[in-house]
Design a protein around this nucleic acid. Sequence first.
DNA 1: CCCAGATTGGAATTGCCATTCCAGAACGGG
DNA 2: CCCGTTCTGGAATGGCAATTCCAATCTGGG
Lengths: 211, 211
Amino acid sequence: MNSSVAVEKPERRRLTEPGRKTRDRIIEAAAELMFHHGVGGTSIPDIQAAARVSASQIYHYFGDKRGLVLAVVNFQTDTKLDQQRPLLDNLDSIDALRAWCAKAADRQDAMGCAGGCEIGSLASELAETDPSARTDLSASFDRWELPIRSGLARMQARGELSERADVVSLATALLAAIQGGMLLSQVRRSSTAYRHAVSAVIDHIETYVVR
Amino acid sequence: MNSSVAVEKPERRRLTEPGRKTRDRIIEAAAELMFHHGVGGTSIPDIQAAARVSASQIYHYFGDKRGLVLAVVNFQTDTKLDQQRPLLDNLDSIDALRAWCAKAADRQDAMGCAGGCEIGSLASELAETDPSARTDLSASFDRWELPIRSGLARMQARGELSERADVVSLATALLAAIQGGMLLSQVRRSSTAYRHAVSAVIDHIETYVVR
DNA sequence: CCCAGATTGGAATTGCCATTCCAGAACGGG
DNA sequence: CCCGTTCTGGAATGGCAATTCCAATCTGGG
């Protein structure tokens, strides 16, 4: 049953130490460039220059551009989630939610509200053009949404949140507000929209607080 | 004072009847292709074939690809706002807000949740690469947000909404929820996220209803 | 130390894309 | 009906991007 269709990872190529290092260097350079100029606006020669590698190295490690894009998607997901920890794993109070979102807003202001969300931008650009990227990005959003949901669930289990609250729905709503708020803020070059969007959803969650 | 920096529209080229028709045909074909494949994924030859025109016609009417993209941005904005009318201009009750968002959700389901939002996708792709497109898209979102805000303001003026409600902030939050919900739904190929996102924000608005 | 496999450099190939150019055909105001 | 302007066709150009190739150089286990 598991042999009918290979899961596409039959053999993982052995990596030596310098190999792993240049591989990482390529991913980081590509992620940076694609964040600023989009996937379509980033060429292999661009990445070569930024990572100080030759073309053959990129194709050696990733097969083709799509393979590299996939690696970038997962790298950005790991990076973004990591940089939100430990706040992300402790979203079990209204204050924690507000602090977490405020930190993102400040970070956004710090870069002039340019660039938007690393994952959201990739998602928008790749959703219709790269099916496997879309799948991975769907998983990325799930990984992001889960800790939100868990935090709310913990609040509810402790009796701090009404039983009437649908924590699954609320977690999705907050993530959506974050994404939509980031997009509006990116276009308007002002974090106001982001702040208003997350504030509205957290205010709404707060109405379920039992006191 | 108005002569120091030309507003970039010193002379509008005269258009004959067939000229206006092919011009429109180009914009429509380009909008369609760019919606499905992104701006970067749509080449001039693609547009030529879809609109049944020669290259010189495209460059005659739009100067270059960026000019065409700008025209597409404004075309999509007009089209999207028009297709939401008359609901969009009567968002002055909770039921009206829900009906309006539900219609968008059904429309999304009807196309398999593919494609996302015409304006949001353009915004994400162009925000960092085309300054004038970003400006226009910022205006597009303003045009979209305004009727929401007006509807809420009318409710408030009528005394149906508490004075404590910040209609400006709430309108932004709803638009952000729509954008973020659409993005999540596009990636997940399920309108659930969109429905949860807008539902949360409208529920929140409802808490301000005076009864 | 030795060799298979991993890693690298750099040029060559192929194809497509944005844009230009040059006539020629249609239009429409006077 | 005439002429400047608009509109159109189609080929040519120049550049760049993705990918391939091959030969050379490392690396690490036995």
